[in-house]
Computed example of a mutant assay.
Amino acid sequence: MAEQTRSIGVEALKALAHPLRVRIFSELTTYGPATASALAARLGESSGSTSYHLRQLEKHGYVQEDQERGNARDRWWERVPGPIELSAATFALDPGAREAGDLVERELIDAENQRFADYWASRSGLPDEWLRTTQTGSATFPLTAEELEELGARVWALFDEYRGRSPEGRRRVDLQFRGFPVVDRGGS
């Protein structure tokens, strides 16, 4: 079942555009709910810092308190479910939006690359079934802009078929899909 895409405004994008906030958002997306202390330990930050940034993320609708966990001493946080988007037209209306969007994208790409590097460095400790079924690779072929848009929609629809399944008997898997036009650095 496809989750509802939430459209965010420029102010919410600017609120996310802080390296630690993007890292916190990415951690909660990838690993699930956590406390400020657990996030601090994972990210090499102080719990005061992660607490502050979690409250800012909550204020702008990126994270919420996990009501099923925690107690008076431990407050658990989770990512608000569903994809988020900022329309391209918004970038034209606010010059700061492009800069904020670029920072968020760079940080998310760095986090994706780090997760793959972490997998690669520790793969020898994984069971054979996970090594055998791990998928890596890329493909380059000619497409029109419309075909790329169609391909992206089909891939995301396929992802949605697997989203929301019970975690029982399953392991978190990071699926990364990027579709973009090849830019010739050689100038030809």
Rank of each mutant, 00 (worst) to 15 (best):
T134C: 04
A121Y: 04
L151P: 07
W130Y: 05
E129K: 06
F116G: 01
D128F: 05
G152D: 15
I109C: 01
G137M: 04
A121N: 10
S122W: 06
S138N: 11
L131S: 08
L108C: 10
R171E: 04
L126Y: 13
R115N: 05
V155Q: 05
S122E: 11
A145R: 15
R171L: 09
A139D: 03
E168I: 09
S122D: 11
G137H: 05
S122Q: 11
A117M: 03
E161T: 15
S122R: 08
E147V: 06
T136K: 05
T134L: 04
R165M: 12
L158I: 11
W120D: 06
R123N: 00
E161W: 13
L143T: 12
A145S: 13
L143W: 10
A139C: 06
Y162N: 00
F141Y: 12
R171Q: 06
A153F: 04
R163D: 14
T140G: 08
Q135R: 14
E147F: 04
D160M: 06
L126T: 08
E161K: 14
A121V: 10
E168P: 02
F159E: 03
L131I: 12
R115K: 09
F116L: 01
R165Q: 13
L126K: 09
T140L: 09
P142I: 07
E149A: 15
A145F: 10
N113L: 05
T134V: 04
A153V: 08
A145P: 12
R132E: 15
T133R: 03
E112M: 01
E149T: 15
T133Q: 02
G125F: 09
R115S: 05
L143V: 13
E129T: 07
V155A: 09
R123E: 01
L131C: 10
I109M: 03
T134A: 07
G164Y: 07
E129P: 00
E161D: 15
E147L: 10
G152C: 14
R165Y: 09
A139G: 05
P127R: 07
E149W: 12
Q114A: 15
R171T: 08
A157L: 08
V155Y: 06
A121I: 08
E161Q: 15
W156R: 14
G169E: 01
S124Y: 03
P167F: 05
Y119R: 01
R170K: 11
A121K: 09
T144G: 12
A145W: 10
T136I: 10
E112A: 00
R123L: 00
G125M: 08
F159N: 05
E150H: 11
E149C: 13
S138D: 07
L158M: 13
L148P: 09
D118E: 06
Q135A: 13
E147C: 05
S122F: 08
T134Y: 00
Q135G: 10
L108I: 11
E147D: 13
Q114F: 10
F116N: 01
L148H: 14
E161L: 15
